[in-house]
Computed example of a mutant assay.
Amino acid sequence: MGNQTAFLTFSGIISPSARQLAEQLCRQQATPKKGEQVRLNTLAVSFVNSYLQYMSVETDLEASDCWNPVQQLFMDVADLSIKNIGSLECRPVLEGEEFVYVPPEAQSNRIGYVAVQISKSYREAKLLGFIKEVSTDILAISQLSSLEKLLEYLTQLNTAKLTVQSQISNSLIQITQWFDNIIDNSWQEIEALLSTQAIYADSSLRNTKHAFISRGKLIELRQQKTEQTVVLVVTLTPENESEMDVIVEIHPTKGEIYLPQNLQLKILDLEGACVMEAQTRSTNKNIQLQFSGEIGEHFSVKLVLGDSSTIESFAI
């Protein structure tokens, strides 16, 4: 079904179910041109999905943007979600063509690009090669790397992801233990870290109907020859037996009025994806994000200032 040469490619039959789905989605589009685009994108993604599953790479087809009817309508995307890694763009190419078209909306938030040659009958496909990044709409097929590089690359990304997750798990802060007074010494009462005015403003954010606990930590962000220190404050308020409200705040240290400009506060999920973020301007005295989470849920707080960043990881 495949061929192994110095430059690895892969040829095969497109499954009847994939062809049927592509035809169905094609007919739902407003114009024949858009319909053909969706058909080819669907065939390309389906074929790459089958190949990667055959090579024991876990995919999540339904999580891909190209499977979203709204995304199909307004965008030209052919992404395949690779579990725990990211989105791989699967760009269709017709027989005889020497270039791959990569639309602007597909030139970011991708872990790589695969060119998929689709036969005129829509029954066969061939994976022509792979490239990690693109910076132009038109990519020559001759620029692609062997398909073997794709498998090596996905293995590297998965290994790196597992390593990061392991490091996060090993350094998790069990913040619900704060209610039992099990608190690491680096997390102090906020009165020791913030000015009186900041504490007053800080307390107004809390839900006083329920018990809550707040702790703060000094965070150092080093930039070349300078060093900025801010205060990270985390507040936990029980919502019910299985859910907690969490407030994450950043304040300047005592003696400082404003936070550094362009300081980014991000909340990351277990996979390391950013789910919420805030950024300071020139005169921010604090920034904060608030969310709810279930007992046992993991999240991380990431602070970014220029080329300096730090992460604190928590379990609710």
Rank of each mutant, 00 (worst) to 15 (best):
L154E: 05
F130R: 10
G129W: 06
V77M: 03
Q174A: 13
G86K: 02
D202Y: 00
N240E: 05
L144A: 03
K120D: 13
F212I: 03
S166E: 10
L289V: 14
N284Y: 12
V234C: 12
K120L: 04
E133N: 11
S203T: 15
I250T: 14
L150S: 07
T208Q: 13
I131Q: 11
Q24L: 10
G86E: 02
S64M: 10
E58D: 13
V275A: 06
Q71I: 08
H210D: 11
K266W: 00
G255M: 07
S46L: 10
E62Y: 11
E294T: 09
R19V: 12
A198K: 08
V38M: 01
E58C: 04
D137A: 06
D65T: 00
E227I: 09
G293F: 02
A30W: 03
Y113R: 04
G129Q: 05
L21M: 09
Q156N: 04
S64Q: 07
Q4H: 12
F74D: 02
G296L: 09
G306T: 09
K254H: 02
P103H: 15
A192G: 02
T163D: 13
L232A: 14
E98P: 00
I138A: 10
G129H: 04
V93R: 00
E152N: 09
P103M: 05
S50V: 13
P69E: 10
N68I: 03
T196N: 11
C90H: 08
T283H: 12
E152Y: 01
I199F: 11
Y101M: 00
K266C: 07
I168W: 15
Y122K: 01
S87W: 08
L147Q: 09
Q143C: 04
C274A: 08
E249R: 15
L303K: 03
N84C: 06
V246C: 14
C90P: 07
T163L: 15
Q24H: 12
A6I: 03
